[in-house]
Amino acid sequence: MKTGPHSRVALVTGGATVVFRELVDETLMPKFLTALQDHGFSTLLLQCGVYHDQVLAKLASREPDNLTIEVFDFDPDLKGRMRICRGEANLQPAGVVISHAGTGTIADCAEVQVAQIIVANPNLMDNHQHEFAQSMARDHASLVHGRLGSLHEAIPEALAVIKSLGLDSLEPYQEPVFPLRDEDRLTLIDQVIAHGV
């Protein structure tokens, strides 16, 4: 994988068991791949679960270019792959994680301080993720609401987020230390009082 001072990494997580095929397929489209390259990305990491073999077959006919694509089906340490997209001062510019609008993935990206493009999966329970994705992107500066059919347009938006939040020049990542000290703990009672719930 190409990484270094001038290369950005995009991680697409399409799911390991229930695959968001439309998302994976769109990230293989020439328009999307060109947008990545035009905006300084050198590597695309693509998690596609049980769709793995079909994706490899699609990539077999791909014209060579300056974008490295690594396809994998499952990684028990997906958060570790997200950290590859994390920018660090004088080491690597920030990349982006592209995923469905799921709370677990959003939380993991927030923890490692990575910009994220969230895409509603229209196949899940009456497209319930659409409104959630809109709301989350509106309320959280590190999130961009991407849309199927025009996902390439979210790449410059993600770069604007990276710039505005200074994600290219973060300090090295450190895993949280557990258990937390008593004075650093936030209890349910504290949350209820703080939010007046």
Rank of each mutant, 00 (worst) to 15 (best):
M1S: 09
T3S: 14
G4A: 05
G4Q: 03
P5I: 14
S7I: 15
A10G: 04
L11K: 06
L11N: 00
V12R: 04
V12T: 09
T13S: 15
T13L: 13
V18S: 15
F20E: 13
E22S: 12
D25W: 10
E26D: 06
P30Y: 00
P30G: 06
K31F: 11
K31W: 07
T34Q: 10
A35E: 02
H39P: 03
F41T: 07
T43D: 03
T43C: 05
T43S: 02
L44N: 00
L45E: 05
Q47P: 10
C48L: 10
C48V: 04
V50T: 15
Y51K: 01
H52A: 08
V55S: 01
V55L: 01
L56Y: 08
L56S: 14
K58N: 14
K58W: 12
R62F: 01
R62A: 06
E63G: 10
E63L: 10
L67R: 03
I69Q: 00
E70M: 12
V71C: 08
D75H: 13
D75V: 02
D77P: 03
L78E: 07
L78V: 11
G80D: 09
M82Q: 06
M82R: 05
N90Q: 14
L91R: 15
Q92I: 07
P93I: 05
A94I: 06
A94F: 06
G95D: 08
G95F: 04
V97E: 07
I98T: 02
S99I: 07
A101V: 01
G102R: 05
G102P: 02
G102L: 10
T103C: 15
T105K: 04
T105E: 02
I106V: 11
A107S: 13
A110F: 15
A110G: 13
E111S: 13
V112S: 04
Q113M: 12
Q116V: 07
V119T: 05
V119M: 08
A120R: 01
A120T: 09
D126T: 06
N127A: 09
Q129C: 05
H130R: 15
A133T: 09
Q134A: 11
S135R: 14
R138V: 10
A141M: 02
S142L: 12
S142E: 14
L143M: 08
L143E: 03
G146Y: 07
L148W: 04
G149M: 00
L151K: 03
E153L: 10
P156Y: 02
P156D: 00
A158G: 11
A158W: 01
A160K: 05
K163W: 06
S164M: 15
S164Y: 08
S164F: 11
D168M: 08
D168I: 01
S169A: 12
S169Q: 14
S169T: 14
L170N: 03
E171C: 02
E171V: 06
E171W: 03
P172A: 09
E175R: 14
P176C: 12
V177E: 11
P179V: 05
L180I: 12
D182Q: 10
E183T: 10
D184I: 08
T187V: 04
T187D: 09
D190C: 01
Q191C: 15
V192W: 09
H195Q: 12
V197F: 07
